[in-house]
Design a protein around this nucleic acid. Structure first.
Length: 635
RNA sequence: GGUCCGGUAGCUCAGCUGGAUAGAGCAUCAGCCUUCUAAGCUGAGGGUCAUUGGUUCGAAUCCAAUCCGGAUCACCA
């Protein structure tokens, strides 16, 4: 039981015994005592005054005395300042904590609670390699899964691979046209990068063709458009003309830009090369052998390449779903919902659900030709996950651009009365943006995942060589160290921020290795390990029963680790762990500078500090482990 | 236009289930390596917590309105 909960229940008990009144932990607040006052935990009395009918000073004294009497093992003294009742935790309490847990590497982690959770994350497209945005997703998903495990859940990590559709056909077409039979082996390129290069080639050609259509349009030649396209372009053009007549504000300029985009999108759809893509998609769905073979071959290149990246960054999955297997799922559920009146059919035969009463819009769930849309298979996959694993909670790690989509998915499942609907949870996270704005693979403004990891490792190497502390390392050990530090710095950079916030990444600046960073934490871990190599721990020694302020600060912050894991698990928020671990490393760093462990005032003091150092190292290693960050023995 | 998210130090971010004088890191300035690893430590300066109003003993935190930035509202995925 955490100290905080211990204190809460002590207060509730005492209030009951003193005044015969029942309170809950929500009726009053307990804070960490501010450093400028004496004490460790503070009971804020204001909210208790009315019901108890006591003045702050009187209530504080009565409560303070009573708790001191009934819980002498917990508190040693108290003081009251204004309405704040500050308790000092008994040194014996800290001592017991140290004796009970200094060798406990699982400290803070809970035993199995019998609940099962699936965390879906990563979910890549197979037409291009992973970029920095995917890294945030991967780090978040992996970390959240580990945090849930630490809190007692049985966790299944899953990924849905988007392996079919327009995007991969684009790469396939480009490879057919310009590939000359190129393979990862023949080109020496990583498979996912090779396929991504063809995607970029395709986009370049597509852009070129769309601009050509625009030029023909300007010359009054609209023969390349079918009737629907012509009509759409005319309509967009009319809306554009109308806007031009209005006063030119920022808002109208934006609207015009949007219309320009829409018109260009229509032109792109009308290009010859997009025609080829559409045909290829039809051929794929019809199972045309040469298309299927090409598709399998190019996807296999991507998988090989991505496996290398996943291994590099430490992502793993218990279950991988492929969209080529799931894209037909969900139709039977739609039919069932149609029979039960959850959905309705429009005259053109398409199937919809009306979500306007929930503040959303009408949503299509089946096209007029009976084929499914994205949400259809998501409904199906949600069910499949539940059927396969009987999960109690289903977490989706997906960017905030899909907030609306996920809201709709959950709402539809709820309206269908599916038992698992309420347990669908979207862990929404913000985009990683460049100083110039959003990364766009179409425009080639992406930070490649493999590249950024390599750069971080290079940076770790430069810093390490400058400091020259590990000159005796073998080349393999050095490479391992650079990886631990470089990848650690990157993961920490992306995980220390609240998931929902946007992160700005400036490729022209290197990510810090000093301050609020993984290398700082790793450095303090290495310092502890160095001490532990040089100083022997003696068991069965009597420890001195008093603490210096920094010693107490350390043990007090170690004590909070279990509560932090719980909080991070409830909030699905690795940044809570990151901030906590940084703070404990910082406290240790001050302690380290201020007090010697090896040359402590007495052998007893040295043994106490060794135990504090061990516990700090355990918590750092454990907490960083939950973020997917390794810690080095030396650096 | 509807919905959602954000606006805290020059920059990047904590704090947001209401509590004591709003905290870190970077950057700037001043100190500290013959002593366990200086990727460090100590200190200084730096704030109308977007604005206005409300609720309250007490508001960065809750409520309302406004301003700014972003996302989204596809028979794309």
């Amino acid at each position: 039981m955490y100290l905080l909960h211990n204190i809460q229940s002590s207060v509730i008990e005492s209030l009951s015994e003193l005044y015969g009144q029942e309170f809950t932990e929500k009726d009053f607040q307990i804070n960490q005592t501010k450093p400028e006052f004496e004490g460790d935990y503070t009971v804020v009395l204001f909210s208790l005054l009315k019901k108890t009918g006591r003045a702050p000073q009187a209530l504080g004294e009565e409560l303070g005395n009573h708790i001191l009497e009934t819980k002498p093992d917990l508190f040693s003294k108290y003081n009251i300042i204004k309405g704040f009742l500050n308790f000092s935790v008994a040194d014996s309490y800290w001592m017991n904590l140290i004796n009970d847990h200094y060798e406990d590497e699982r400290f803070g982690k809970q035993s199995l609670n019998g609940k099962k959770v699936m965390v879906e994350y990563s979910s890549p497209n197979t037409n291009k390699p992973l970029h920095l945005g995917h890294l945030r997703n991967n780090f978040l998903g992996w970390s959240v899964a580990e945090i849930l495990k630490a809190n007692g859940f049985t966790v299944f990590k899953s990924s849905i691979v988007n392996d079919r559709g327009m995007h991969i056909c684009k790469s396939m077409i480009a490879w057919e046209k310009w590939g000359n039979g190129e393979t990862p082996e023949s080109s020496g390129k990583k498979g996912d990068h090779l396929v991504g290069d063809f995607y970029v080639m395709f986009e370049n050609e597509l852009r070129k063709q769309a601009i050509e259509l625009k030029q023909k349009e300007d010359a009054d030649d609209v023969s390349h458009y079918d009737e629907v396209q012509q009509q759409k372009l005319i309509e967009l053009q009319q809306r554009r003309n109308k806007l031009l007549e209005e006063p030119q504000t920022k808002a109208t300029a934006e609207k015009i830009a949007k219309l320009d985009d829409d018109m260009m999108e229509t032109r792109r759809g009308a290009t010859a090369i997009m025609g080829e893509v559409k045909q290829m998609l039809l051929d794929w769905e019809a199972g045309k052998p040469e298309v299927i073979d090409l598709w399998k071959m190019m996807n296999s290149w991507v998988y090989e390449g991505m496996d290398v990246t996943y291994k590099l960054i430490g992502s793993d999955f218990d279950r991988t779903y492929y969209e080529s297997n799931t894209y037909l799922l969900g139709k039977d559920i739609i039919q069932d919902g149609l029979d039960r009146g959850v959905f309705y059919r429009k005259p053109d035969n398409s199937v919809w659900i009306d979500l306007t009463s929930d503040g959303l819009d009408e949503k299509l769930v089946l096209r007029k030709d009976g084929t499914s849309v994205y949400i259809t298979q998501d409904i199906g996959l949600a069910k499949q996950k539940y059927d396969e694993y009987k999960i109690d909670q289903s977490i989706y790690v997906i960017g905030n651009e899909q907030n609306y989509h996920m809201k709709v998915l959950k709402l539809i499942c709820q309206k269908l009365g599916l038992s698992y609907a309420d347990n669908i949870h979207h862990l929404s996270y913000g985009m990683v943006e460049l100083p110039t704005g959003k990364m766009k693979s179409r425009e080639g403004t992406v930070v490649d995942a493999d590249d950024v990891v390599a750069e971080m490792e290079k940076e770790a190497q430069i810093k390490t060589e400058e400091l020259g502390k590990v000159k005796d390392f073998t080349p393999e050990e050095l490479a391992g160290l650079y990886h631990i530090i470089g990848l650690g710095a990157l993961k920490f950079f992306l995980l220390r921020v609240d998931p929902k916030n946007t992160i700005e990444f400036d490729p022209s600046k290197t990510i810090d290795f000093v301050g609020f960073t993984a290398p700082f934490i790793q450095f303090n871990y290495a310092r502890i390990k160095s001490i532990l190599r040089k100083n022997e721990l003696q068991k069965n020694i009597h420890l001195p029963l008093d603490f210096l302020p920094l010693e107490k600060e350390l043990i007090s912050s170690i004590e909070k680790y279990p509560a932090i894991i719980k909080q991070a698990s409830e909030e699905l928020n690795p940044s809570a762990i990151a901030i906590y671990i940084y703070n404990i490393a910082k406290t240790f760093s001050s302690f380290y500078t201020e007090h010697s462990i090896a040359n402590a005032e007495s052998e007893e003091k040295k043994q106490l500090r060794l135990r504090l150092a061990i516990m700090t190292a355990n918590v750092i290693k454990s907490g960083m482990g939950l973020l997917g960050i390794d810690v080095p023995e030396r650096m």
